[in-house]
Nucleic acid binder design. Sequence first.
DNA 1: GTCTATAAGATGATAGAC
DNA 2: GTCTATCATCTTATAGAC
Lengths: 195, 195
Amino acid sequence: MNESDIVMRNIKAELIKTAQDMIQKFGYNAFSYRDIANEVGIKSASIHYHFPSKADLGEAVAADYRKKFMGTLKEADEQGKTTSELLILYVSLFKQALIEDNKMCLCGMLSAEISSLPKQIAAETKLFFHENQNWLVSVMLRHVKPSSSAPMTDFKTEAALFVASLEGALIVAKGLGDVDVFNKITEKFLSPYLD
Amino acid sequence: MNESDIVMRNIKAELIKTAQDMIQKFGYNAFSYRDIANEVGIKSASIHYHFPSKADLGEAVAADYRKKFMGTLKEADEQGKTTSELLILYVSLFKQALIEDNKMCLCGMLSAEISSLPKQIAAETKLFFHENQNWLVSVMLRHVKPSSSAPMTDFKTEAALFVASLEGALIVAKGLGDVDVFNKITEKFLSPYLD
DNA sequence: GTCTATAAGATGATAGAC
DNA sequence: GTCTATCATCTTATAGAC
């Protein structure tokens, strides 16, 4: 018995992680406090101490996802990577969920369900897409040679199409029941951006 | 009082229509028999006469959607339309849901939720994507000039990318809270196919 | 075919002991 | 912070009257 046996559990973080996993797999309306409680190993009533309502939990999950997602991107950005490298990293963030457990992008799932979500969660979801679009535009503006006199709106649409292709690739891969479809699709629309 | 006042209601069809609408808006796990019952104007217990279980209803909804969707495509196909016209029609089928009531494609929603669905519904969802892919491949094979010696798998991937772009465009438009983003995105990836 | 009545279980949530 | 106990409500579903 030594210090390494004393494991500090961060229940709040575990709740967020488990809820995030279930939303990506099943959707926001398909999991209950009991489901997470069983997974984490506490009672469902105890969750209310950390997150008074399910909407609070959902909001925390979405915010955590967005911050980590954008954090990874900004970090890679500051390392002076090329457009190719940055976009390949971006694609890998989506692919990760799919190969891990046939999961959706968290905010892709939430966006599909957005009309049935508490307002706080819907707002967090929108923030994710806006920040994603901004990041992609900044990458494209800095690195891609602008075709003649392409206006700013073209980059915003190009960024939107890029995210859309990824969210859709997840859905189609799941719908066809073939994970490798994701690779084939992304290879196709990514190729113009590669060195 | 004449014959035109005698309105024949097809409750079963109304149930399917209402359930379809709610799945596209909220997701399969976010509506109840009570919700549809209230909308249609009968009691929730009565629904079980038409659809013994919710899975039966979900299966019927998905099958109905797929058959009407593919029916529209095949019909247009037989009228000898051009690739441009066929693909514009295809895109319009997705756009329709979005502008109508910020809805997803039914099977896009179901595919996102697929891990939480009864097997019959998951199977119907997969069928939709396979039939869509096949239709798109047939259109592309007949009308698009194949680039040099492009193998068949390229068309399957190209078709998958096409569907993915549309499913994703719905998600991103909803996520950005801007329906017009759908138009801008589809215009961008559709343009290479237009005359 | 639709209703009322009812069931068994799940759900998000609260109160209060420890 | 976590527990037990409890709640009101919702969920899918069935039985039987009309």
